[in-house]
Design a protein around this nucleic acid. Sequence first.
RNA 1: GCCGCCGUAGCUCAGGGGUAGAGCACUCCAUUGGUAAUGGAGAGGCCGACAGUUCGAAUCUGUCCGGCGGCACCA
Length: 653
Amino acid sequence: MITVKFPDGATRDYAVGTTGTTVVESISKSLAKKTVAMRRNGELSDLSELMENGDVIEFVLRDDEAALELIRHDAAHVLAEAVQELWPDTQVTIGPVIENGFYYDFSRDEPFSMDDLKTIEKRMGQIIQRGASFTKEVWSREEAKRVFKAKGEDFKIELIDAVKEGEDLNIYKQGQWFDVCRGPHMRTTRDVGQAFKLTKVAGAYWRGDSNNPVLSRIYGTAWATKEQLAEHLHMIEEAEKRDHRKLGREMDLFHLQEEAQGSVFWHPKGYVIFRAVESYIRRKLDNAGYQEIKTPQLLDIKLWEKSGHWEKFRDGMFVVPDEVPAEDDNAPVLSGNAKLMALKPMNCPAHVQVFNQGIKSYRDLPLRLAEFGCCHRNEAHGALHGLMRVRQLTMDDAHIFCREDQVQDETKKFCDLLDSIYHDFGFEDVNILLSTRPEVRAGTDEIWDKAEGDLGDALEATGRSFTIEEGEGAFYGPKLEFHLKDAIGRSWQCGTLQLDFVLPERLDASYIGEDSARHRPVMLHRAILGSLERFIGILIENHAGRMPMWLAPVQCVVATIVSDADEAALKVVEQLKAAGLRVESDFRNEKINYKVREHSVAKVPAIFVIGKREAEEGSVSVRRLGAQGQTVMSVEEAIAALASEAVPPDLRD
RNA sequence: GCCGCCGUAGCUCAGGGGUAGAGCACUCCAUUGGUAAUGGAGAGGCCGACAGUUCGAAUCUGUCCGGCGGCACCA
């Protein structure tokens, strides 16, 4: 006899050899019907597992949140079976669950087409209908390798070799088809249900390494119900509507073109946003004790060699020979002997140069040097993406030179500043990651121990929670990453704080301490918005183009109904301008419906409509973006309301 | 950089071996209309670039360039 416990504390006795299935069936038929897996001593597990004495079990129903992962995992298996049924010469590799779905990587000569996806979906539907049971077997490594070798599954052999010693090698069968898998799975393929869809095909490297062969990856999404699937697909559509590249074109904010691949042409309206963001950050930094500087674009590569960037990031730097190219067609355009300069990919070495001028005292620390540094990075072609990934970017960058015992205080000050800034932009949900030493790095292990410890301690002292990301730090030091959630739940990494003991050493930065000896300062690299280009992209998507008043490129349009109102309207325009608002007028000979639609589509937050009536009584009819109707009020009242709304958040009372 | 898909008017897209179409936008004319599209006319394209096949290529093939979706990268 064995005893099984339930979460509510109840216990039941069963014969040895009892499985989860037997247990749930002994409780209630209807419960058994809905149960697809179990949580056994806290861990998700197959319902068919044998129970052991003292096990605490909790049943996982198909509608439970926890079942989603299983649905997606099983869907990945069904996908693989479907593909191998349709194209038996295809090799299978891995098929994990990801956010909102799953994928499976296949090795195949012919890549999959979008039409193939339809065919595969259909076959998946049939496999699910068949409802084969998932059954687990434990094989020896030799046996598994022999079987997969015979099937020509070379990638699986590598995976089998990667399973840790001492760990069971599980084979999950679903009918005739089987795969090496850690599990767990639901009862049968039928439990996957029909709320799934294959979404895209893409290339992906085997084991994520670009030296390895490229596999064909099929992405899919799967949900418990058709409603959830529909909701998810709707969400994707919403995200597409917010695409900043599309909105940027429609709203005439910026453009990109071949001749300056990856660099932004800001149009007047877009640059209004850029300047509003930059001025705001400048005020915040001024108030937080930073001093703004401006450093050169082109610096001799000798400096980059010294700093270590040359060695690590040479392939991402734009290098410029300091030489006039020859015009003679027969001569080489460049001699190859010129001194080499590089466009700065980041500001830190230049900031150290500023720090190094003159002699710094401990009394000068912490010294906070800020720069809206324009940096160039030769990003891979495939990486470029609208404003999100560009080759010329402007960072709200700053470097804090301080003593080691000031790190904690500076970290706290930084976190507070960051919170207030994100709050002002309307981002309240911030997730913090601490990234530790990467494989390729500068500095000794001792220095890294210290840096990681200091940064972790400092963050802990602020009382914020964070998660650790092993191996994701910068080459010169550990870093904090600040990820913020946007209006539709997507996460963006923006802020960063990096602790650096290495660069001050390499570039020989020092200050005179109280003991009148020379000391190395610690350097904190930090940014809050990251690249302004990217941050503006995020703002556009977060607001779906409907920028808050203080950031809206055009804050108000004054539109007339009849030309008799032009004179009064012109006065209102002048008054709005005098109040510091960005205003446009629309006195065209068009119907008011037409004008309202046009400016609404252009996402102008306020339209002041003036007809005969308003002109006579000195009022305006105010129509706000997104509102159904409009409000008539006095010109003064309307302007005051708009002006107060247009005050940047840091300047409000 | 790698894999796949795509490239026709400013934008969104249709078409397709015999030299090009729609809607919106644009220009002009009429309309002075009360809150998300007034009517009419006009103009606008080396069908991404180069090469090949062909009597003939925007259409088929190849190469390149660019865009998109992923992957890799992200100081």
